[in-house]
């Protein structure tokens, strides 16, 4: 029981990062039906910005907001340069475009800073633990969970209470009708990319803290986790994406700790395989959020 609780909290820490990534993927998919394989590049680029910032002796306290800003700007630039030109094209055209962007970003990084791995110092407290009764919790996990909760609350407020959020939700539900109501399609799409970039930025802070390094293809892993978590939640469903991310994190931690050690190294393979297998039976996503009946 204790170990289960322990795993659950560890898993939520991991899953929170995935949830933020998945939410960013789902926001974009909802508005323009783009499955964004370039989402991880936001973290790659932020990672190099962090490397540069640490080079100028900045501390994590300054680097963290910098990461968010870089992530948002990168997201907007990618939209402007590439995605705005394939808007409304088929899902596959958009998906392959994002795939192409992934390649270009990593290649440009290889050209400009080289293919080698760049490391930086993790914050000193990253492996500190706090004992709560029988549980031994990482400070880092608790921080991730807390920040994610705040970020999700802020996102919820943005989506529920602001005109932009309302426009975004309307555009995701029915783009043409939203335009008929006067929603400016350029603005809402740019806003979606900014939001997606901000969420990736927050996730990126923790991802980079944990990794302590970056390299030109560092985006593949976060992209994959984000995309899969969004799919678990049913693409386009925001609540589903968050739940999908948390579920993915918990599943990973549980598998890693419960599987016999010879198989535990295969956790990623098992998780991917499980997801693929589950998709065969529930391709609309594993978690379906209740929808109102369409009249």
């Amino acid at each position: 029981m204790t170990s289960l609780l322990q795993n659950l909290i560890d898993g939520l820490g991991q899953g929170s990062i995935y949830a933020l990534l998945a939410l960013g993927v789902a926001v974009i998919f909802g508005v323009m039906h783009l499955l964004n394989f370039a989402h991880g590049e936001l973290i790659t680029v932020s990672g190099y910005a962090a490397v540069a910032a640490f080079g100028s002796n900045l501390s994590w306290w300054l680097v963290a907001p910098l990461i968010i800003v870089v992530s948002i700007v990168t997201s907007l630039v990618i939209e402007r340069v590439a995605f705005s030109r394939v808007r409304g094209a088929s899902e596959f055209t958009q998906l392959l475009t994002s795939f192409g962007i992934h390649i270009i970003v990593s290649a440009v990084l290889i050209m400009s800073v080289g293919a080698s791995v760049k490391t930086f110092a993790e914050p000193p407290w990253i492996f500190d633990r706090i004992d709560v009764g029988p549980l031994s919790l990482e400070k880092f996990d608790l921080l991730v969970i807390a920040v994610t909760a705040v970020t999700l609350a802020a996102t919820t407020w943005l989506l529920q209470r602001t005109t932009f959020g309302l426009s975004l939700r309307a555009a995701a539900a029915d783009f043409d009708t939203a335009r008929l109501m006067g929603v400016d399609s350029d603005r809402v799409i740019r806003g979606a990319f900014a939001l997606s970039g901000a969420l990736a930025g927050v996730a990126g802070i923790f991802w980079l803290m944990r990794a302590g390094n970056t390299d030109p293809s560092a985006g593949i892993d976060p992209m994959l986790k984000g995309v899969l978590a969004a799919l678990i939640g049913g693409l386009g469903s925001l609540r589903g994406a968050v739940l999908g991310g948390l579920a993915l994190g918990v599943a990973e931690v549980l598998l890693r700790s419960q599987l016999p050690s010879s198989v535990a190294v295969l956790t990623d393979a098992v998780v991917f395989g499980l997801i693929a297998f589950l998709f065969i039976f529930r391709p609309q996503g594993l978690i379906t959020v209740q929808h109102a009946e369409r009249v």
Partner: peptide, 14 residues
């Protein structure tokens, strides 16, 4: 083509 997942007042606000 009302937004079925939004509330009535949210539809109006849109």
């Amino acid at each position: 083509r009302i937004f079925v997942d939004l509330t009535v007042v949210e539809n109006l606000r849109i």
